[in-house]
Design a protein around this nucleic acid. Structure first.
Lengths: 125, 125
DNA sequence: GCGATATTCAACCAAACGGTTGACGATGAC
DNA sequence: GTCATCGTCAACCGTTTGGTTGAATATCGC
């Protein structure tokens, strides 16, 4: 069999870091907290029972994955959710990456056609 | 602040294992291979440049995450994609905004339509 | 300048990960 | 029965991960 083209467009490393970042419950909770509002590092750490340094490391991992951005204003560093970084991962999950952009476009057209045809079945509550 | 309810419904451990499983490029390629067809462990391993035992471990991780199932028929163990396991992860990601949850049903119909259109490259029987 | 606050850095630790090799238990072919 | 094939297990190895602590670096308020 042909080698399974593991990194067709360089997106693979990105997916590595994004999925790895999402694999930790602390980091997922942090993302959920940032969904409500931007927060300073100290405030992010406050509800957790671990050291500030540990939270700082988690935030660095989230930043490297592109899932948040950090901006220092004065002596406090503000953390901001960057939900766009989830998009690639979401797209991968739809197509498992191996169906190149061409097919994804086709899939989108397919979805549009479907939505035009049927009334959508009201997603589960 | 209130403790950030890290595991509201017990889905958290599930998400841990699913995202961790997806964080490895080898495993993502395996999932993509299984998207085309069920495969025996040996056939899954064939295109990779690592030992069969390593692939066996990867498959065990994917199985523990619920992303595939394995059924032994005779002396060959068949691996089958279980895309439903992606649903929880997708729903979690959906909480972060603008992307839709994976529409697996639509994606499967799309794949069937595509496979009916083109002659497939004949995966191993 | 001085002390308090905010954050990271550095060194360390235990545990998990991703890989190897070799032995092993099933199963199928003959 | 014998032999090859399929797949896992067990032990090992180096690296990464998730956490700790304590020192260091900015920055703010005074």
């Amino acid at each position: 069999m042909t080698p399974p083209a593991p990194n067709a467009c360089g997106m693979d490393d990105r997916l590595d870091t994004v999925f790895a970042a999402l694999a930790d419950p602390t980091r997922r909770v942090i993302l959920a907290m940032l969904l409500e509002d931007d927060m300073a590092v100290t405030d992010v750490a406050e509800p957790f029972e671990m050291s500030l340094a540990a939270i700082s490391k988690h935030l660095a991992i989230l930043t490297r994955a592109g899932l948040i951005s950090q901006e220092k204003r004065g002596r406090v560093k503000w953390c901001k959710l960057e939900p766009d970084a989830l998009r690639d991962a979401s797209i991968w999950m739809q197509g498992f990456g191996q169906f190149e952009a061409v097919n994804l476009d086709a899939f989108e057209r397919f979805l549009e056609a479907e939505l035009a045809a049927e009334p959508p079945p009201a997603p589960p509550p």
